[in-house]
Design a protein around this nucleic acid. Structure first.
Lengths: 123, 123
DNA sequence: TTGACATATTCCTATATGGGTATATATTGG
DNA sequence: CCAATATATACCCATATAGGAATATGTCAA
């Protein structure tokens, strides 16, 4: 099997740096014409259009037709899965004190677990 | 050009669901032998080894040799870039009130900017 | 209608992938 | 040394990619 399509989910879509750059342009929440993104980032127009299509397919952006322009807008809630996922690991680098405390707790729990279960499977 | 290698950076590495599953097993911060991960997730051993290699190359996990086992451990700080990136978008879905306030502020800033710069380029 | 502009799509190609399966490489116990 | 166990690697393959160039589609304005 090949790698999952970039349009499979948000995680695959945002793996591409260019697409994150595009999102950075859209982060202000306003509508942006494709040409504006092209100018802002200095990448070729077909590339921008293609990347926007991927972002659109996973729902991270939305489009509105306005005359000959197509206005893209960030749809931030579709990024939430990434946030929810990373949140699980967050505690390890934020709040050094909490981390230490957490580790101490873990050790204590381990000890307790070991005491109450003499034939433990942990190697 | 083809898609960037999975080992290019954390974003590419975590795009693969199986690798996120593996990280979920390692999230407790303890050492885990490959076989334990295999048992926990029920995926074939070569696959787990290969995925662990990718995670290792981007630094998200570290290894220790212990006898015939190789103990993998989460190296959470390497996930921080993902957190830092998503943080920029976080405010949009957390705290509805903040979001409204933020939008109001943005509008005001826009108005101020427009007033002080009559020949603006915004379309 | 025609031309100018904005955007999307098509075609091309080198490349890395993930999953299987099979095998190689440790390391240990006896 | 041998067998058993744990893990990594090699091989095969169908597949989707990102970028570049060229072109198609759509929309406006005169």
């Amino acid at each position: 099997m090949a790698r999952a399509a970039t349009t499979t989910d948000v995680f695959n879509a945002i793996a591409e740096p260019r697409r994150r750059e595009i999102l950075a342009v859209l982060v202000d929440g306003k509508d942006h014409a494709v040409g504006d993104v092209v100018d802002a980032l200095g990448m070729p127009q077909p590339g921008v259009s293609k990347h926007l299509r991927v972002l659109l397919e996973v729902g991270v952006v939305s489009v509105t037709k306005q005359g000959q322009h197509r206005l893209y807008r960030l749809n931030p809630k579709e990024l939430k899965p990434v946030h929810d996922w990373i949140k699980t690991y967050e505690r390890y680098w934020t709040h050094q004190i909490d981390r230490i405390k957490e580790r101490a707790e873990r050790k204590m729990m381990d000890r307790i677990a070991r005491e109450s279960e003499p034939n433990n499977k942990e190697k």
